[in-house]
Design a protein around this nucleic acid. Structure first.
Length: 486
RNA sequence: GCCCCCAUCGUCUAGAGGCCUAGGACAUCAGCCUUUCAAGCUGAAGAUCAGGGGUUCGAAUCCCCUUGGGGGCACCA
């Protein structure tokens, strides 16, 4: 596009360190990243830390960590707004001199009671502009009284501002519905509105991609750009991601921070794929896209307008797909930390890598998240699986027949020299015939005896991995367990 | 209360006037495969396209109203 040749594509992700990044923040980061990479542009990381009071310790690290985990890289930054205060003051001075802003000496208490009164009268809460036309003398007097003022924007009383949005099209706001918003707080820090506009301009941001919640403050930003006689960037307001209760995502919604998903065993590639599909789609059938394909195809035209509720079930499915696609070695690498973390303490550490990879070969296609792996594999590691003896009995098998079958199996098994899945299967199949049992009955019995579960990886491969000693011990233990039933 | 946005299966979505008796995916259910589970395959169910008016030969698609949902209205971002 011609305009893009003239103005390089420069995007920014500008989170505030007031909490750990959640799905919504990261989806915004992802779309910014995809757009920048698709157009061969730059992505700038900017930390909007102008709220000293709400600053959360460790939030910046969490933001950076999350981006890195997902493989979303940036070209400049992180810039910290708290270190750019002089820039904001310079611009604020200029705005004041040119009459676009004024000092306001109203106390928070007065503003609060004003709002309460407005609420009582069912009026829109809006600053009543008491200081808008204060004389200099009045201002000086208040200042010598020790009042620390805020700087407000002198919003035009009439007319309207139209925001042209790449996703929504033109959106108009009447000035009478806007109020004189604050640009500089009494602590000298700029508000979001001021800092954001100044930085987007000085960092030459070409496209602002941010969540829909910002749409209603965009006219203020446009007004500011106009007052500064600067051109606005292109705006694109992305659909929000809502919690299951359809409200804005917040801590209330439980596991919502991105690091939480990492802990729960989701792969970054799966996460990226899933997040990309929240609000964007390629066509009417493609669900699985690699990072490269996403970059190649990403386009604002295909971003929707409707807020989305993320559903974990689909994430689980995508994650399972990505888990199965991993090479066995890579799966071991990924799963190992989860085994170390979640296997029972009684299991000796460090884990034997050779044994682990044999086990995980049987687990890989059964896990939807890495956090499920220790669960699925625990019986491979513990000394004796702990289970309810009643599991040994099912269908036609009563204590007597189960005991008979189990001891026969124990005898046959102990004679097997070549402890491999194939020979185990051969032996046990013929044993089933001898015992006049269905294979499912005998195998089911053995499965419980060997794994302690009714659902497990294929029996004979499992036995092969467990090894002869361990299997014989477990068959023996099962026999003793059976004897306690009567 | 005021302003703004949005509205297709439970959820994510395709659909930019005729291809739609609305397609795909997840989840659900059934069957197949099979020693269980998982995976895979096949199939089913699931949306009067929020409702009502227009415009048009023809509307999920365009316009209006209503309703519903969401967001914003801080010395928070």
């Amino acid at each position: 596009m011609q305009s893009e040749l003239q103005h390089p594509v420069r995007l920014r992700f500008a989170p505030s360190p007031t909490g750990y990044p959640h799905l919504g923040n990261i989806r915004t980061a992802l779309f910014n990243w995809l757009f920048a990479r698709h157009h061969g542009g730059k992505l700038i990381l900017r930390i909007e830390d102008t709220d000293v009071a709400r600053k959360v310790e460790g939030a910046i690290d969490a933001i950076i960590g999350s981006l890195r985990w997902l493989g979303l890289d940036w070209d400049e930054g992180p810039y910290l707004q708290s270190q750019r205060l002089p820039d904001y003051h310079q611009v604020a001075d200029r705005l004041l001199q040119e009459g676009h802003t004024y000092w306001c000496y109203c106390s928070p208490e007065r503003l609060e009671s004003m709002r309460q009164e407005q609420a009582r009268l069912k009026q829109p809460p809006k600053y009543d502009r008491r200081c808008r036309d204060l004389t200099q003398e009045e201002g000086h007097r208040l200042e010598t009284d020790g009042v620390r003022p805020v700087m407000r924007f002198r919003t035009p009383l009439e007319g309207e501002t139209t925001v042209s949005d790449l996703i929504h099209g033109p959106v108009s706001f009447k000035h009478e519905t806007l109020d004189d918003f604050i640009l500089l707080k009494s602590d000298g820090y700029p508000t979001y509105h001021l800092a954001n506009v100044i930085d987007d301009h000085s960092m030459e941001i070409s496209h602002v991609l941010r969540a829909d919640e910002w749409l209603s403050s965009t006219p203020r930003h446009v007004l500011l750009y106009k007052a500064l006689n600067r051109q606005t960037p292109h705006f694109a307001h992305l659909p929000m991601i809502l919690g299951p209760d359809r409200s804005k995502l917040s801590k209330r919604h439980g596991a919502t921070t991105i690091t939480e998903y990492q802990k729960q065993g989701y792969l970054p590639e799966a996460m990226v794929n899933f997040l990309a599909l929240l609000g964007w789609s390629l066509d009417d059938r493609t669900e699985l896209l690699s990072r490269e394909e996403l970059i190649q195809h990403f386009s604002l035209d295909r971003v929707g307008k409707t807020a989305a509720i993320f559903n974990r079930e689909k994430l689980d499915w995508i994650n399972g797909v990505y888990l199965r696609r991993l090479s066995p070695e890579e799966f071991v690498n990924q799963a190992m930390p989860f085994l170390e973390r979640d296997l029972p303490e009684s299991v000796g550490r460090p884990l034997d890598p050779g044994y682990v990879s044999e086990v995980l070969a049987l687990v890989q296609e059964r896990a939807r998240t890495l956090a499920e792996v220790p669960q699925l594999a625990s019986f491979f590691f513990v000394d004796e699986p702990d289970y309810n003896a009643a599991l040994l009995l099912s269908g036609k098998l009563d204590v007597t027949s189960a005991t008979g079958a189990l001891s026969a199996a124990l005898r046959s098994a102990s004679c097997i020299k070549d402890w491999q899945a194939a020979s185990l299967e051969e032996t046990m199949r013929s044993l089933a015939v001898e015992l006049n049992l269905e294979t499912r009955e005998l195998f089911g019995l053995l499965r419980v005896a060997v794994t302690g579960r009714t659902a497990a990886p294929p029996l004979f491969e499992t036995m092969a991995v467990l090894g002869k000693d361990r299997c014989l011990k477990r068959l023996d233990a099962a026999l003793r367990l059976l004897s306690t039933l009567e």
